[in-house]
Structure formats: structure tokens, C-alpha cells
Design a protein around this nucleic acid. Structure first.
Length: 572
RNA sequence: GGCAGCGUAGCUCAGUGGUAGAGCAGGGGAAUCAUAAUCCCUUGGUCGGGGGUUCAAAUCCCUCCGCUGCUACCA
């Protein structure tokens, strides 16, 4: 049977992630992973923090901590937020792990041996005051084009022109503001991406049908514009050290570029998972050689990550051939941005909602459903508290929550809290089953196609069908004159509740469990309903004792919305 | 500047050559099991502007306007 390997783009270690990061990679990866587990597939769902790179070093400096301590703290914070959202990773690792260091160095050695790495001398900006090399964007000065006095060395934010640090007038370090900077020669390793254009072209074109247009067009653009070789080392301290046996030690003291080691962490974290769970060398069967032939690999990411996953990482993988045949991604799902109230989420301006504070406001399921139903799949989408409250109140509280509530309470008050066994299903029930057969298939197909917005629309339509049925069956009316007829409606209602618990589990796991447990105890993985609805909806044993759960989704009040808008920033 | 995407009902969005759609919001009605929750009916759009191709254009082509993103050393 096919095994399913799923990775989410790695959240950068530098601070708690906002809802956009959640919506654009981690959450859809989790929903899809749960869906596949529910279907009974052997599934490995992985994520990790991306810890290297100069922003981490500088943030640690800013916080007055050494980098390792800073990362340890930030990792704990991110892990807690991830757990809070019920992201069910088989392992949530760290790119600074020993496993990733080993894998990164391994790939570099193979690439070197295969002649895919060049040693080149480049000009880098060095700050004497900070005693370190600076990335282009950490050099600031006056833009030679528009005169903006805080232009960055990579691009002027004012006139949007692309710059080189040496173009800047009166350049200075963004770290210390010191003008005492100079240009120094520095030796670096370059990955000869240009050698791989034909292979990449063939591979990308072969996947056109199963990648979103967004992903294909980004990948295609990079190839069209002419792929340049990319420097994969940096003059920093924090990162995977370049081993001395590459290029006769010319790179001594340097580290790999974060975008070289971060994707390799997908493999590194698999090893972390195996070691943490006593799985020995089985990690390799998910990735390499003929043992991994039955693995189907899914990646989830925001659009900013797409070039590195369609070009950079694939070149690393292709460059290790023919000695080693590592897996390339099969399905790559890219997302647009989630904006906040018409503008960007901003950490520095405290604008928007972040994962930790979101959970202070409401349980994870509210966010999970909303973010999936409004997934930024085809264009950027916009989060507002007004829309959020309207969707959550209508879909979760009124359509789903109230349905569960009305059926179970009626059963408790009129049928002694037991699944009534009287009467037989008739035409109304057959029509409902026919509709749900079609809708459940559509829902399943949309999830399979990674079309989350449409999947949520179908899930909601399934809940609506339950309400429509109940209105037609009207057991509260028949109860007075025809108890048997009322019993049929209640029995079907309870079976609907049960099936809803199964169908909703990948999206809203906590509420789905509560729904399931109103009827009977739930297994750790709530399985996907794959039989005809006529069977699924006649499943519950007659006489089974059920209970009415507490209110599943409390409504969000106007006062709460007003307070949150105030707290999290209004118009941009 | 270059490249890409987007622009459809008050709002969020489907729809890629064949009579303009869904959900929400708004209006009317039914029901009273339920978190005043549900169900039925319904108002509402010269599909950003202009031009072209076609028997037929939201859909294809040209052009203009507006918004957004990317542009390789932030990730």
C-alpha cells in the first residue's frame, strides 16, 4: 500500500508565527495528514523549526542571549503553539539538530564529489564595528535613485529598485549604525544550478498537472529567466559548519546557507523521528532508493518558499545521483498570503493575530475551520474579525453545533437517551443517503486534490443536508401522534451526528471527538467513512445510550469582536 | 523598470466559448426539537473601462485603469 510522506515548510525560529504561516503550510499539512491517517494509510507527518541564518544571530544578539539559548527558548514557544493547535506531527524537530548537520554535510560532500560545487571569490560587506560580515539587507544607506535615506542594501523599500550594497550613499551597518564598513573578498561554495536546467525542466513539466498554477508559474519563471548558480555558504557562526574535507579546507570556519540546510532538514527530521521512536534505520525507507518507491511525498508551503522547493532543493537531490536516489516531491501545494484587515500581518508592528494569542481568545478548532474554509489558495485572502465571527457563528455554532445539540437533546428528553429502534427508513432517508453519497465523495475528492476551500464548502453542505432532513422528518411533530415515525427521524439524526464526527475530525479534531463521544467512545484516529451512506447511517446499535454534549461552539459576541479589533490593530 | 497573479452581487468567493452562480448579509414566510439556533421562498450584478475575434465572450486577443506579489545575500 502507498505510504504518505508529508512535510510543512519549516517555520522560522525567530518568534511566534502568525495565522498566515499556520494557514499557508502547517495547518493544511496537518488536515491532510489526519485525512490520510483516517483513511488507513501509513502516514508520516513532519515539521521542524528553521533555526539557522543571520536573522537568528542578530535577534539573539538583540535579546542578549547566545544563539543556542535563544533558539531553545523560541523552539519551546513554537512547540507549545503547535501543540495548542493540535498539529499532529509525528515529529516536530529542529534544523539545528545533529541529524540535520550530518545530512547537510553528507549532501555537500556528495555534491562536491560529483563536481556540482565551485569555489568562487565574492565581495562581501564587512562591519568593523560589529566584527562580522553583513547580509546585503543589513547594510542601510541613502538610495542613489530616489534619495530615501533608509534604503536597504538589497532593495530600496521606497522606490522598490533592486540595489547592491556598494550603490548606497553613506552606507552603514543596520546592526550598530556604524559607518565603519568595508568590502572584503570572501571564498564561497556555489551550487552549479545551471547544470541542471534540462533535468529540472523535464521534472517540473511532468508535474504541471498536479501542482497549482501558482507553483508551476513560479518554477517556470525561474527556469525561463535563466537559472544562476547559487552561493550555498555564508560567513556566519550559526549554522552547519562546512567540513574541512571539502575544497581542501578553503571554507574553514564558514557555515552553509540556511536555504541549503533547511530543506535537507525534511530528511534530518525523519531521522530525528526515527531515533526518538526507536525506529532505527527505517527513516531511510521513506526517502531513498527502491525502499521508498511506494512513498508519495506531499509538501505544503507559502508562495515565498516555492523557488527553493522547485529549484534549490531538487538540485541538491539531483546532484546526489547516481550514487543515491533520494525522493523528489510528488505533490507540491503552494499558498498565497493571508492578510490581516487589508494589510500585512506584522510582527514588528504587532499587527494581526499570532498563534499563541489566538489560543487565548478561542479554542483551536474555531481557527482551524475558518482558516481552511478561507484558505488563500487561488489568491491572497483577508482575515477580519467581522468575517471570522460571522463564519464561525453561522457554520460551527448554528449549522453544526446546534444540529448536534437539537438531535441529542431531543433524544434525551423524548427517547430516554437511547437510540430508538422503532420503524424503518423510507424514501426521505433514501434521498438523504443519495445526496450524502454524492457530497461525501465530493468532499473526499476535494481533500485528495488539496482543494481545501472547496472541501470545506462541501463539508458545510453536508451539515446543512442534516438540518434539511431533520426539518422534513420533524420528529417533534410526529412524536405526538406517531412515535414510530418520530423514532426513525431521531435514529437517523443520531447516525448523522456520528458520521459528522468522522467527517470533521481532520479539520476540527477536538470538537469532532466531542461529537463522536456523545454517541460512543472514540478511537485515537477517527476513521474515514468509506461505505455507502445507507450503511454508515444505519450503523448505531438500537438501544445504545447516548448523551447530549455541552455546547460545542459558543457564539462570538459583538462585544468580543469590538474588543479584539481594538486590541489587534484596525485599518492599516 | 521586468515578470506574474488578481479585478464577478453589499461582503467572501466559484465559474475559462453556449440563457450570470454559491454562502453570508438584506426582505417575506413556515416550524417550535435546539446555542433565537433551523427550513422554504426571495431582492440584488451593463462579470474594472474601451476596442477586437466569433453565430455566441465573464471566458480568447489588444489596450487602458486599479490592487497585490516576486525580482535570486531576510526567510
Amino acid at each position: 500500500m502507498t505510504r504518505i510522506l508529508i512535510t510543512s515548510a519549516l517555520p522560522y525560529i525567530n518568534g511566534v508565527k502568525h495565522l498566515g504561516t499556520l494557514a499557508g503550510s502547517m495547518l493544511p499539512a496537518d488536515v491532510f495528514g489526519r485525512f490520510k491517517r483516517a483513511q488507513g494509510f501509513e502516514t508520516l507527518l513532519l515539521c521542524a523549526t528553521d533555526e539557522h541564518g543571520s536573522p537568528t544571530e542578530l535577534a539573539a544578539l538583540d535579546a542578549g542571549q547566545d544563539v543556542r539559548t535563544f533558539c531553545d527558548e523560541q523552539f519551546a514557544i513554537q512547540k507549545k503553539a503547535s501543540d495548542g493547535f493540535n498539529l499532529s506531527w509525528d515529529h516536530f524537530g529542529r534544523s539545528s539538530s545533529a541529524q540535520n548537520r550530518e545530512m547537510t554535510q553528507h549532501f555537500a560532500r556528495v555534491l562536491w564529489k560529483n563536481g556540482h560545487l565551485d569555489v568562487r571569490t565574492t565581495k562581501q560587506v564587512y562591519s568593523n564595528a560589529d566584527k562580522r560580515f553583513l547580509p546585503d539587507r543589513y547594510v542601510i544607506g541613502t538610495c542613489p535613485h530616489c534619495g530615501y535615506d533608509r534604503a536597504r542594501g538589497d532593495q530600496c523599500e521606497n522606490c522598490t529598485r533592486v540595489l547592491d550594497p556598494i550603490d548606497l550613499i553613506s552606507p552603514r551597518s543596520a546592526v550598530s549604525n556604524s559607518p565603519d564598513i568595508e568590502i572584503r573578498d570572501s571564498t564561497h561554495l556555489f551550487l552549479k544550478q545551471s547544470n541542471f536546467v534540462p533535468q529540472l525542466r523535464e521534472w517540473i513539466d511532468a508535474h504541471r498537472a498536479e501542482w497549482p498554477p501558482l507553483v508551476y508559474s513560479i518554477a517556470n519563471k525561474w527556469l525561463e529567466e535563466g537559472l544562476q548558480d547559487r552561493g550555498i555558504t555564508r560567513d556566519y557562526d550559526w549554522g552547519v559548519p562546512v567540513p574541512d574535507d571539502i575544497a581542501d579546507g578553503q571554507l574553514k570556519g564558514k557555515v552553509f546557507y540556511v536555504w541549503f540546510d533547511a530543506p535537507i532538514e525534511y530528511i534530518g527530521v525523519t531521522k530525528e523521528w526515527a531515533e526518538a521512536n526507536g525506529k532505527g534505520n527505517s527513516w531511510r525507507d521513506w526517502w531513498e532508493g527502491s525502499a521508498a518507491k511506494d512513498v508519495r511525498y506531499f509538501e505544503f508551503m507559502g508562495k515565498d518558499n516555492v523557488p527553493f522547493h522547485t529549484v534549490g532543493f531538487p538540485v541538491t537531490i539531483m546532484g546526489a545521483r547516481p550514487q543515491e536516489e533520494w525522493k523528489l516531491v510528488d505533490r507540491l501545494k503552494g499558498f498565497n498570503w493571508l492578510n490581516y484587515d487589508g494589510g500585512k500581518f506584522s510582527t514588528s508592528q504587532k499587527r494581526g493575530v499570532f498563534m499563541d494569542t489566538a489560543l487565548e481568545l478561542l479554542p483551536a478548532d474555531y481557527w482551524r475551520y475558518y482558516l481552511m474554509a478561507n484558505s488563500p489558495e487561488n489568491s491572497d485572502s483577508n482575515f477580519t474579525f467581522d468575517h471570522f465571527a460571522a463564519v464561525v457563528n453561522k457554520d460551527l455554532a448554528d449549522v453544526l453545533g446546534n444540529f448536534v445539540n437539537r438531535v441529542t437533546k431531543f433524544c434525551v428528553s423524548r427517547f430516554d437517551g437511547k437510540v430508538p429502534g422503532e420503524g424503518c427508513y423510507g424514501e426521505d432517508e433514501a434521498a438523504l443517503c443519495a445526496e450524502l453519497d454524492a457530497r461525501v465523495k465530493a468532499y473526499t475528492d476535494f481533500l485528495e486534490a488539496l482543494e481545501f476551500r472547496k472541501a470545506m464548502g462541501e463539508l458545510r453542505a453536508i451539515w446543512v443536508a442534516g438540518n434539511e432532513y431533520l426539518t422534513r422528518a420533524a420528529p417533534w411533530t410526529h412524536f405526538k401522534t406517531d412515535r414510530e415515525k418520530a423514532a426513525v427521524g431521531v435514529r437517523m439524526g443520531l447516525n448523522l451526528v456520528h458520521v459528522f464526527g468522522h467527517l470533521a475530525w481532520p479539520v476540527i479534531p477536538t470538537a469532532a471527538r466531542a461529537i463522536h463521544e456523545a454517541i460512543q467512545p472514540a478511537p485515537a484516529i477517527i476513521p474515514w467513512p468509506d461505505r455507502p451512506m445507507a450503511e454508515e447511517l444505519d450503523e448505531l446499535e438500537h438501544g445504545l445510550v447516548i448523551k447530549a454534549p455541552d455546547v460545542l461552539f459558543a457564539k462570538i459576541t459583538d462585544e468580543q469582536v469590538a474588543a479584539w479589533k481594538e486590541r489587534f490593530g484596525g485599518a492599516p
